[in-house]
Simulated scan of single mutants.
Amino acid sequence: MSVSAEKIASLIDMTEALRTVDDETWGFYAFSADFLNNRIPDEKKHEMIRKSIACGENCADRVMKEAGDSSPSTIVRQLGLEVIENDFPMTGNRKVFAQFTPPKQIEIFKDPLKRYESLLARASEQQASLLIPLQEIYNLVLGHEIYHYIEECNADTIYSRAEKYTLWRFFGFHYNTTVNALGEIAGMAFSRKLNHVAYSPFLLDVLLFFDYDEEQASAIFQKIMHMKEHI
Score class of each variant (00 low, 15 high):
E136M: 09
P103L: 09
E151G: 01
F100S: 06
Y149W: 14
K164G: 00
D69Y: 02
L113E: 04
K95D: 15
E85Y: 14
H148K: 06
I75D: 00
Y165R: 08
D156H: 11
K110E: 12
Q135H: 14
P103K: 12
Q99S: 10
A98L: 07
K114R: 15
V63K: 07
E163N: 09
E66T: 00
D87Y: 12
R94D: 09
M90G: 14
E82Y: 13
P102Y: 11
S129P: 05
E125N: 11
P103D: 15
K95E: 14
P89S: 07
Y138N: 05
I106V: 06
A67G: 01
D69I: 00
A162V: 04
S73D: 14
S118T: 12
V83P: 02
P133S: 04
S71Y: 08
E163P: 04
K95M: 13
Y165C: 02
R122G: 14
L79S: 08
T74A: 07
L134T: 11
A128I: 06
R94E: 11
S118E: 14
L134S: 11
N93R: 15
N93G: 03
L131H: 14
S124F: 10
L134R: 13
Q126L: 07
T91R: 11
L134N: 06
G143Q: 02
R77E: 11
D111E: 15
I150P: 02
R94Y: 13
I150A: 00
F97P: 04
E82W: 12
E66W: 00
I137Q: 07
L81R: 10
P103Y: 13
V141H: 09
H148E: 02
K114T: 09
Q126M: 10
P103C: 09
T91I: 13
H148V: 01
L113P: 01
S118K: 15
I146T: 03
Q78F: 03
F109G: 07
S160Y: 06
I108D: 11
D69P: 00
T157Q: 08
V96A: 10
I106C: 01
L130A: 07
Q135E: 15
A155G: 11
D69E: 13
V83L: 04
I75Y: 00
N139G: 00
L119W: 11
E85H: 13
K104Y: 15
D111G: 06
A121N: 15
I158W: 05
E163R: 14
I75F: 01
L113C: 03
G68N: 07
S124V: 08
S118G: 12
V76D: 01
Y147C: 01
C153W: 03
L167S: 13
Y165D: 06
L131D: 12
H144E: 05
Q127S: 04
L119Y: 13
D156K: 15
R115I: 04
I132P: 08
W168G: 05
E107R: 09
F109T: 06
E85R: 15
S118D: 12
Q105N: 13
Y149E: 03
K164T: 05
R94P: 02
Q126S: 14
E145V: 00
P103W: 11
L142V: 05
V96I: 15
E66C: 00
R77A: 01
S124C: 12
Q78D: 04
E145F: 00
A162N: 11
P72Q: 01
L142D: 07
H144S: 02
G143N: 02
